[in-house]
Design a protein around this nucleic acid. Structure first.
Lengths: 368, 368
DNA sequence: GTTAGCACTCTCAGTGGGAGAGTGCTAACT
DNA sequence: AGTTAGCACTCTCCCACTGAGAGTGCTAAC
C-alpha cells in the first residue's frame, strides 16, 4: 500500500538510537530472512532496553515508513525505504577481503585473455560467492563500420560474406543468392562495395541500398547490401551479449521457495537471456553518459517481476576512450531479493568491475 | 519398486487389442499428464468395449509391467517398460512437418556461419518448439597439437602466450612470469619450443616438461610448458562446450510443479552447465565408436535426478572424418519427463542433428 | 469373453481448533 | 518524559478430521 506511505523527505534525520535499531533490524533480516521481533533483537544484541521500548521505536520507524510487518503478530520487515536509508546512510563502506581478492585475481590470470572469457568467469565466480543472480556485460562498440568486404562463392547460389570492420572484429555470414552469379562478377562487386562502403555503419549501408539500387529488391547487389546491414547490426548487438549466472543460488533463496509462479517467470527470463528485462535501459543509458554505480531497490525497477528484488550495477569500460569509436560501457549487475547483503554485493560489484577494467586495459590497452 | 517388476522378456508378444490399449494409454498420458482411467479412454476414443473390459486389459498390462498406478483409485500410468515398448514397437516413425523444417532451415541460413552459433541456435529453437530441456554440443577435436608458439612480453613479468594449433584454432593466454625476462631471451625460448613441440599434444608437452627441465619448478621454461599443457587441455575442452536451453519450458512441465527440491537440483545443474551430469559419458563414448541415436528412458540414466526423465540423443559430426585428427562427435540431446512426446522429440533430434551435419559439411567441408 | 453393479480405497480440498508468536495498549514506575 | 511490566488481542501455522469424488477390483450374471 504505497499510498499509505508518508512522502520521503530525504533530509529527515533519525535520532541515533532509532537509526541504530533500524540498522539492527535490517542486518538481522538480511541474515535470517524472518521478520524480526522486538524481544529477539533485544536478546541477540544485548540492548540496554526492554522489548517494549524497542517496540515503541519500531512503531515509530514504521510510521515513518522505514519498516512494515506482514501481519499483526509478526516481527518487523524493512520497507524499500528502509533499505534505501540503510544503503545511503547506515551501512558504511565495505571492501572484499584480501584473500578473496587475491583468489579472484588468480582465476582471472588463469583464463584466456579474451573479454568474453572474463565476463563469463566474473559472472560464474561472483554468482557462486554471493548466491545471487549475476549479469556481466562486456563493453562493446556502439556501431561497427566496414573496413573491407569479401565475397567467397561456396557454390553457384551460396556465398560466404566476410566483413572486416574497423573495430578490430571479423564477421562471417552465409548468404544464399537470388540468382546464379559468376565468380568474377562476385569479386568485382566485392571490390566495388569494399571501396564505396569503407568506414560506413549499418545505417549508412541501408541508405546506400535504398538510393543506389535502381532495380529494386532482388538484384544481387541489393541482397548483399541488405545482408551486410543486418550483419553489422547483429554483430554490434552480439558483441555486448552479457553472461548470466547464479540462477541456482537465486532460486534457493527463501523468498522464492513458496512462489513457484514468480520463480518460473524469472527462470524464463534467464533462459531466454533477456538481459534487457533484467537491467533497465535507463541505467545503461546513464552509464553511457558517464554515470557511476547504481543501486536500485524494490519498485525502482521497471520490470514488474523484479519489483521485489534489488539490483546493484557497476559500469566499467576501457579507461582510454577513443572518440572515433564510441563504446557502450560494460557492467557488473547483481540481482537479488531486496533482502540481499548490500555491503557485500556493492563491494563485490565494485571490485569485479574495476578488475575487468584493469584486465582490459592491461591486455588490450597495450596494442593501441 | 523395481523388484516387484517381472523380468523383461523382449520376445513377449502382446495381443493386438492389448497393445492398442497400451498405445492409447501412453498417448493420452503424454498429452494430459494425468493418470488415465478406463472409462476415460473408452469415451474419448469410442472403443467398442465397456470400461470393465478395458480395466481387465489394463490389469493384465500392469501385471506384465507395462503400466502402474500411483494409488488404488487412480487411473493408469505407463511404466518405464511401457514407454520402452512404446518407443520400440508401438509409435512408428515420424518426421517434422515440411513447414517447420523450412522455417528452421531459414533461421540457420540467417545465422553467422560458425559452429558455435549453430549449436546455440539449435538449442534455442528446439527448446522453444518442444518445451523441453535441450543440449546441443558441437563436434570437437579430441586433442590439440601445437603448430607454433609465440611469447609476447606485455611487461617485464607478464607475457601473452599465443598458440596456433594444427586443428585450425588459435589460443591466447595471459601468463605471469616467476622472474623478469629479457625480450630477446623470450623470443629465443619461443623459437626453441616452437621447434621442439611441433605436432605435440598436451600429454607430450607434460612429458617434455618433466624430462627436459633440470632445475625443477620455477624456471621460465617450466612455467611456459606447464601453462602450454594446461591451455591445450582447456581449449580442447572448451571447444566442446554445449549450449543448453529450455529450462523455462522444462520447469513449466507439470511434473516439476509440486517438486521444488528436484526442480532446484535441475536448475543448479543447468546453471553450472554441468553437461557431464546431464548426458551419460557412456553414450558419448558410444557415439565416438560410431553409435547411432539413443533413447534413454527413466532409470537408464546414471544421474539420480534424471531417473524420472528421458533422454533422446542424436550424434552428428563432419561426414568426412580425418584419421589424423580424431574428433569427438557432437550431439543433439533432448531431456524431458519420461512422459515426453517421443515421436516428435525423436524426429526433431534426428532432423536437427542432420541439419547441423549438413551445415558443417557445406561450409567447412569446402575448405578441405 | 464381456458386462453391470457395488464395495472399497485413496486423494483432495475445505474446516476447525489449539499452540505459539508478537504486537499494541494501558497503567505504573523512575 | 521516557521506560517498563502485564495482558488482551490477532494472526499464522500445523494437525486432525471429514465428505465428496474418482477409479479400481471383484463378483455374478449375460
Amino acid at each position: 500500500m504505497p499510498s499509505d506511505m508518508p512522502p520521503e523527505r530525504p533530509t529527515e534525520r533519525l535520532p541515533d538510537r532509532r537509526a541504530g535499531i533500524l540498522q539492527l533490524v535490517i542486518q538481522d533480516y538480511i541474515e535470517t530472512a524472518t521478520p524480526v521481533a522486538s524481544r529477539h533483537v533485544v536478546e541477540k544484541y544485548a540492548l540496554p532496553a526492554s522489548p517494549a521500548t524497542i517496540r515503541h521505536e519500531m512503531h515509530a520507524l514504521e510510521e515513518q515508513g522505514y519498516l512494515t510487518h506482514p501481519h499483526t503478530s509478526a516481527g518487523r520487515i524493512p520497507s524499500n525505504r528502509g533499505y534505501r536509508h540503510f544503503v545511503q546512510s547506515l551501512m558504511g563502506h565495505a571492501e572484499l577481503g584480501m584473500a578473496e581478492q587475491a583468489s579472484v585475481r588468480h582465476q582471472f590470470f588463469q583464463a584466456a585473455p579474451a573479454v568474453d572469457e572474463w565476463v563469463e568467469l566474473a559472472a560464474n565466480v561472483l554468482a557462486r560467492s554471493l548466491g545471487l543472480l549475476v549479469i556481466v556485460a562486456p563493453p562493446h562498440p556502439e556501431r561497427l563500420r566496414v573496413r573491407q568486404l569479401e565475397l567467397i562463392a561456396l557454390n553457384e547460389l551460396l556465398v560466404l560474406m566476410i566483413v572486416v570492420v574497423q573495430e578490430a572484429r571479423m564477421i562471417r555470414q552465409l548468404m544464399p543468392l537470388p540468382q546464379p552469379v559468376e565468380v568474377d562478377e562476385l569479386a568485382d562487386l566485392a571490390a566495388k562495395l569494399s571501396g564505396d562502403l569503407r568506414g560506413r555503419s549499418a545505417r549508412d549501408v541501408r541508405q546506400a541500398a535504398q538510393h543506389s539500387t535502381d532495380a529494386p529488391q532482388h538484384t544481387v547487389e541489393a541482397v548483399v547490401l541488405e545482408t551486410l546491414a543486418q550483419v553489422l547490426e547483429r554483430d554490434a548487438q552480439r558483441a555486448g551479449i552479457p553472461a548470466i549466472a547464479g540462477l541456482g543460488g537465486m532460486m534457493a533463496q527463501p523468498e522464492f521457495q513458496h512462489e513457484p509462479e514468480r520463480s518460473l517467470e524469472l527462470i524464463e527470463l534467464v533462459d531466454q537471456h533477456a538481459a534487457q528485462d533484467l537491467i533497465p535501459a535507463a541505467v545503461i543509458d546513464d552509464f553511457t553518459m558517464g554515470g557511476a554505480m547504481h543501486v536500485l531497490i524494490g519498485d525502482d525497477h521497471p520490470t514488474e517481476l523484479l519489483q521485489e528484488c534489488s539490483l546493484v550495477l557497476a559500469p566499467y569500460g576501457s579507461s582510454i576512450p577513443d572518440p572515433a569509436a564510441p563504446e557502450i560501457p560494460g557492467y557488473v549487475g547483481i540481482i537479488g531479493p531486496t533482502r540481499m547483503n548490500y555491503p557485500r554485493s556493492i563491494a563485490a560489484a565494485r571490485f569485479y568491475s574495476q578488475l575487468l577494467q584493469e584486465m582490459i586495459d592491461a591486455v588490450y590497452g597495450v596494442n593501441r
